[in-house]
Write a protein that binds this DNA or RNA. Structure first.
Length: 266
DNA sequence: GCCATATGGAAAG
DNA sequence: TTTCCCTATGGCA
């Protein structure tokens, strides 16, 4: 259930554990069996993330493409335990084991097919990709910025939490049209995503609250939430805004819950 | 045990 | 715009 920062961490971990090694690949659940048989025993070169997509590369230039979707999860272990639950894919070496459960996508691609997938992925703030095409599209779009931020072709790796938080940090109403933003505001938002998401890669949690706004009493509770960090608005509906005290609201946009402060984000 | 929910995205209508 | 897929978990009875 990750946003881009988690996928980048997983890419690093897979590279660290498996690169330049022969890897046994299997699929206890069965749905990846044919591909696993094809690739097992190959040498893994590296894993890399593009937004929320993960590509695990092998020396023959084929790649396993993984997208976790809402439920997908990697588990890293020193050695493979008796398979428990539904494991789509396992990577095993003498020293390490990675288990993948519940991904939205998991398939073996040729390098040509991988190229096609990559075309659908826009600039990624964590990689500090060039945002100029995104800027052009956003600044001329009539779609709400809250929707544009979820478009992976525009902001690869941004998910529901970073969307809500970055809008709050820049006092932007989620319903504002993309073209209502100034160039400066767009640049500030993009730069902020780079900083926030790279911090997320380092820490493995999403922290977006400036120190001066951290309410002592809420620290513990916020930290216990699933994203692991402290936030202004995400899943805080009904609670008071850390900045102005207004009640945080929840509405639906693109079928996802969107959280925002009606006072700070007019 | 049952039900709702979840940081996503593609396909169907 | 709705439906569907993939799986685990937390709250509640």
């Amino acid at each position: 259930m990750p946003e881009g920062h988690v996928v980048h961490r997983q890419a690093k971990e897979i590279t660290r554990l498996f690169s330049r090694q022969q890897v046994a690949v299997d699929s206890p659940q069965g749905r990846f069996s044919d591909s696993a048989k094809q690739i097992t025993g190959s040498v893994l070169t590296k894993a890399e993330a593009r937004g929320k997509h993960l590509f695990i590369k092998f020396t023959d230039s084929s790649e396993i493409h993984v997208h976790l979707g809402l439920y997908g999860k990697w588990t890293f272990l020193e050695s493979p335990p008796e398979p428990k639950g539904l494991i789509r894919l396992r990577l095993i070496t003498p020293g390490a084991c990675a288990e993948l459960r519940g991904p939205n996508a998991c398939s073996l691609l040729t390098s040509a097919e991988s190229k096609e997938v990559r075309k659908r992925i826009g600039p990624d703030p964590i990689r500090r990709d060039d945002p100029s095409t995104t800027r052009d599209k956003v600044l001329s779009s009539s779609a709400p910025i809250g929707a544009l931020l979820m478009d992976q072709k525009l902001f690869a790796g941004v998910g529901n939490i970073y969307r809500a938080e970055v809008l709050f940090r820049h006092n932007i109403n989620p319903n504002d049209q993309g073209r209502s933003l100034t160039n400066e505001t767009f640049n500030a938002v993009w730069e902020d995503l780079c900083v926030l998401m790279k911090a997320g890669v380092r820490t493995g949690r999403i922290d977006t609250v400036y120190p001066e706004h951290e309410p002592r009493a809420m620290k513990r509770k916020a930290r216990e939430d699933r994203h692991g960090g402290e936030v202004y608005v995400y899943r805080r509906d009904g609670q008071p805004c850390h900045v102005c005290g207004s009640e945080i609201l929840m509405t639906s946009m693109l079928g996802r819950n969107l959280f925002w402060c009606p006072q700070c984000q007019k």
